[in-house]
């Protein structure tokens, strides 16, 4: 009987042991699983961070590029302005403050000014030519009588 009991107990112990071992193994597995997942998560986060960083870098680069192009464009327009249109004072304009709209404005103003100057000059020229011709003709009238007699 005792043996029976012992046997039974051993069996129970054995079973308990077994189940403890199984539980232990399961726990371990679970732990491992969790670790793995965490690992993966961390990895994912890291790669995302890297991606984000890369993206940011790219964006910054593009931004810089755009700015550079814009500045180049502005400079080009400004140079054109200097060359193509007479009488624009660009010496005290900070190129970084300019956008193309303002340049266009400047250009328009300059063109307008140029046109006015042109018209002013032509008006003066026209008057002189007109008055000179009329003055000659007025003097000529005095000679008409002689011309008729001749």
């Amino acid at each position: 009987q005792e043996h029976q009991d012992l046997l039974a107990r051993r069996e129970v112990i054995q079973k308990k042991k077994e189940s403890a071992a199984t539980a232990q193994a399961a726990r371990l597995r679970e732990e491992e699983q969790r670790k793995k997942v965490r690992q993966q998560e961390l990895l994912a986060a890291e790669s995302e961070r890297l991606a984000q960083e890369a993206k940011d870098r790219d964006e910054r680069r593009v931004q810089a590029e755009r700015k550079r192009v814009q500045r180049e464009e502005t400079e080009k327009q400004l140079n054109e302005l200097k060359k193509g249109v007479k009488g624009v004072d660009v010496s005290n304009i900070d190129i970084d403050d300019l956008d193309t709209n303002r340049i266009r404005m400047l250009k328009l103003q300059a063109l307008e000014r140029e046109k006015n100057e042109l018209n002013d000059k032509l008006r003066v020229t026209g008057k002189r030519i007109d008055h000179l011709e009329r003055a000659y003709r007025r003097e000529e009238i005095k000679h008409l009588a002689e011309d008729y007699a001749a």
């Binding site: 002189r128 008055h131 000179l132 009329r134 003055a135 000659y136 003097e139 008409l144 011309d147």
Partner: peptide, 17 residues
Amino acid sequence: LLSKEEMKNVRKNLREY
């Protein structure tokens, strides 16, 4: 019908004309 001289005179006095 003007002489060179007369034309020069006119130019000189253009302001008055």
